[in-house]
Simulated scan of single mutants.
Amino acid sequence: MNNQQVLFFQAIKAALPEYQNLALSVAEKLGISTNEAYKKIRGDSNLTFQQIIKLSDCFDVPFLYSPKQSLSVTFSYLNVNEDLDMIGYLRNLLDNIKAIKNSNKKHITITTDDIPLFHFFKYPELTSFKLFFWANSANNLEMPFSSSFLSDEIIKISQELHATYLEIPSTEIWSKDTVTGTLEQIRYAFEAGHLTDTELAVKIVEQVRYCLTDMNMYAISSKKTIDPNHTFNWYNCDVLGSIAYLVDFKDHMACYNRFNTFNYLRTEDQAYCKQTKQWMQGLIMKSVSFSGQGEKHRNKYLYNAFAECDKLLREITNG
């Protein structure tokens, strides 16, 4: 078990804020000496089953064990009830993204055929529409959309999610249809009569354009803020195959795979994460870079995306 125990402590360390000492934290939670905590961290002293449970609960880090020759992977996910508690969903997402931001070393790599949710969280109406669309898709509802779907609390949490993501170094790999997905959702809602307010529909499409303008700014400087540590790399790959988020810490990884429209499966199985990382690195090798000097390809991609936005705006205003 020692190897799994060492990996377990590496995962706990990755989840701790930079200022927090691992051995002191473990000693405090288990009620043992710091010296004994160091022995357990090194694998010289085995954890008891009760201690594993206690550490997992305290630090919200699972202990992962797979028998030899087993290809099974354990995932966790957010249990969203039939009422689809969006505030609960966003709070859980915020807890995850804050834990990543507070880690010593971190980097997120995203493969996606939809605009990463953290970007549209900057814009209230676009955020509201995406949450509305997810709610309808998840529960097979046919309710109309209005700006009242958005609460002050959702706005507050969403903007905090956006601000936190900007402070995490990241690489994003978009497909050729990444922007199209959101535009098609808006088009469908408008044509199906779920989005009847023309002015609101126009505003949502315009906010998609603002998201793309933000992306262009990040790509030009290869960073998301004025802080050089908040690096940003943007790639385009025609065929991706899945939406995945890989969080790479100093000595540990975590993978999030999206399912059921908006929810995600999370695992810290290192073999699985390693395979995911290798797959993403392979995609990057086949991708076109939009960051830094990739101006020509980036401008062409954005030109086509803006043209699709303009096309939808004409359909909405002339319809």
Rank of each mutant, 00 (worst) to 15 (best):
Q5D: 00
I12E: 03
A15M: 08
P17I: 03
Y19P: 00
A23K: 12
S25N: 08
S25Q: 02
V26K: 07
V26I: 12
A27S: 14
K29Y: 11
L30N: 02
S33Q: 02
S33P: 00
N35E: 02
E36Q: 15
Y38I: 04
K39M: 14
I41Y: 09
D44T: 04
L47C: 09
T48D: 01
I53L: 12
I53H: 10
D57P: 02
F59V: 01
D60I: 05
L71Y: 15
L71M: 13
V73Y: 15
V73E: 06
T74S: 13
F75G: 11
L78T: 05
E82F: 15
D85N: 10
D85V: 04
Y89E: 01
Y89D: 00
L94N: 11
L94V: 03
L94C: 10
L94T: 07
N96L: 14
S103A: 12
H107E: 02
I108G: 06
I110E: 04
T112P: 06
I115F: 08
I115E: 03
L117H: 11
L117K: 12
L117I: 06
K122W: 06
Y123E: 04
S128P: 00
L131A: 02
L131F: 15
L131D: 00
F133H: 06
A135V: 07
S137M: 11
A138Y: 08
F145P: 00
F149L: 09
L150I: 09
E153S: 06
I154R: 13
I155K: 15
Q159F: 12
Q159P: 09
Y165G: 03
I168W: 11
I168H: 09
P169R: 14
S170G: 01
D177H: 10
V179E: 05
V179F: 14
G181A: 14
T182I: 12
T182L: 13
T182S: 11
Y188M: 04
F190M: 09
F190D: 01
T196G: 02
D197A: 07
D197S: 05
T198A: 08
V202E: 08
V202L: 14
Q207Y: 14
V208I: 09
Y210A: 11
Y210I: 05
T213K: 15
A219I: 08
S221N: 06
S222Q: 10
K223A: 03
K224T: 02
T225Q: 04
I226F: 12
D227Q: 09
D227G: 07
H230Y: 10
T231Y: 10
N233H: 15
W234I: 00
D238V: 01
V239Q: 12
Y245R: 12
D248P: 03
F249N: 01
K250L: 09
Y256L: 15
Y256H: 15
F259E: 04
F262Q: 05
N263R: 15
Y264L: 13
L265E: 00
R266K: 15
E268R: 14
C273F: 13
K274Q: 05
Q275L: 12
T276E: 05
K277I: 02
K277E: 05
W279D: 00
M280H: 06
Q281P: 00
G282H: 11
G282Y: 07
S287M: 07
S289N: 07
F290H: 14
F290R: 12
S291E: 00
K296D: 01
K300N: 05
A307D: 03
A307G: 02
C309K: 15
R314P: 00
R314K: 13
E315G: 08
G319W: 09
